[in-house]
């Protein structure tokens, strides 16, 4: 197991390095000039040159990339000021420390992701389990129908409707705002309920369908029949044997989805006016803000890679055939 983890972590580092390099070099193929953008309206060539020097854009690309990567681990002194590790530099656009901006925004994304993921996992898997248990009966059919609808709606359609109904008309839920856990935990929860619910809809409908079909498939396996043949109750067999078999596949999908929402749920953020990582990444691209882009990109990639390793480890925990071979 330890060998496996070490191997996966080493592999992950290589992948992250590759992603960082590709992102960095791709940026310089873009036609826009960040120095020109941050120079403002009244811009002289001297100013542009100065800004370029301040941002370090006058150095060769390889050197810039090297400085950037070293900064992440060791921090670096920049013309604009010291940048402690992990240093992603200063934003080209607003000259703030990129890491501070992210630290400011990430709680929103993290809260939204964890809240949404909890809802969609519990609701989706729960619905799927009940559907599989009630296979062919009324509940199963209704749940399938609802899931199908849920699978096909879009957040930018569902979001405004939910705000209109729950917040504006009935005043039962908050319309959504950024959380502030240290000063107003209860308000933070209230502000997240609606966004989390809406975000989870498109996911849980998928989970309920997947869980149902995985469980139905598992229930037709030989070892399920064998377990029943030794007198174990249907419910025991369903929860201990079949669910164990379905869990590996569910976790795999969950890992992918979780890493996606942890990297920022752009549409949900925009719909509810939240200031998370998703929105930040859009802004970074639009403003040609290389340090911010790099930071968002690398954080997203790291999350995906870490989620993958966690999924694989969970897989090994569930399935002894993987753990012991």
């Amino acid at each position: 197991m330890l060998r496996f983890l070490v191997r996966r972590v080493l592999g992950a580092l290589v992948i992250l390095l590759l992603i960082s390099a590709i992102t960095y070099f791709l940026f310089f193929f873009l036609p826009s000039d960040p120095a020109l953008l941050s120079c403002g309206k009244n811009c002289s060539p001297q100013n542009v040159a100065l800004i370029r020097k301040n941002l370090g854009l006058d150095l060769p690309i390889w050197t810039q990339y090297w400085h950037f990567m070293v900064g992440i681990f060791a921090g670096r002194d920049m013309p604009i000021g010291h940048c402690p590790a992990p240093c992603f530099g200063y934003s080209f656009a607003d000259q703030q420390l990129v890491w501070d901006t992210i630290a400011d925004r990430y709680p929103t994304t993290l809260s939204l992701a964890i809240g949404g993921a909890t809802v969609f996992l519990c609701v989706g898997v729960g619905l799927g389990l009940v559907s599989a248990w009630q296979q062919g009966r009324a509940f199963d059919r209704i749940a399938s129908g609802v899931s199908l609808v849920g699978n096909s709606v879009q957040i930018y359609f569902l979001g405004p409707i939910a705000i209109g109904l729950f917040a504006s008309s009935w005043h039962v839920l908050d319309r959504g705002h950024d959380p502030d856990w240290s000063h107003d935990p209860w308000g933070s929860v209230q502000g997240l309920i609606l966004p989390c619910m809406v975000l989870s809809v498109i996911f849980w409908s998928n989970y309920s369908r997947q869980t149902r079909s995985l469980m139905v498939e598992q229930m037709s396996e030989d070892h399920i029949r064998a377990a029943r043949a030794k007198g174990m109750s249907s419910r025991y067999v369903f929860l201990r044997y079949a669910l164990r078999g379905a869990a590996a596949s569910i976790i795999t999908i969950f890992g992918i989805d979780l890493s996606a929402v942890l990297g920022g749920a752009i549409i949900t953020e925009v719909t509810f006016g939240l200031h998370g990582l998703g929105l930040l990444s859009v802004q970074a691209v639009l403003r040609s803000d290389l340090p911010l882009e790099m930071a968002v990109m690398l954080i997203g990639a790291t999350i995906i890679v870490v989620c993958n390793i966690v999924v694989d480890a969970a897989y090994a925990l569930i399935d002894p055939r993987i753990r012991l071979s």
Binding site: G231, Y241, D319
Partner: peptide
């Protein structure tokens, strides 16, 4: 399992791998 029990053909699929 108590009074009547069954032995299946394929022991690989009839025993749970987990």
């Amino acid at each position: 399992g108590r009074k009547m029990a069954m032995i299946f053909q394929d022991s690989l699929t009839a025993l749970s791998p987990y």
